[in-house]
């Protein structure tokens, strides 16, 4: 049946769109923000906060 062929093309199309969205957004974010801000996340944040409250 035709419908399933159309669905196949639709799946290809939507996949490509989603991939494109992520790629574009990724490049835009990387060029807008500095690397220092983007990779500033540090482990153990929560522990540090509780420690500040208790010590």
């Amino acid at each position: 049946m035709e419908t399933w062929n159309l669905l196949e093309y639709a799946a290809w199309g939507v996949s490509a769109l989603l991939a494109l969205y992520m790629l574009v957004d990724w490049l835009r974010v990387d060029s807008t923000y500095s690397e220092d801000v983007l990779t500033s996340s540090r482990e153990g944040e929560l522990e540090a906060i509780t420690e500040e409250h208790h010590v």
């Binding site: 801000v37 500033s40 540090r42 420690e51 500040e52």
Partner: peptide, 19 residues
């Protein structure tokens, strides 16, 4: 002192964007 600002990698002062 794990909240130290001098020691690298200590939270939370280092983190600008976290999860």
């Amino acid at each position: 002192d794990i909240t130290s600002k001098d020691i690298d990698g200590m939270g939370p002062h280092g983190t600008k964007v976290g999860l």
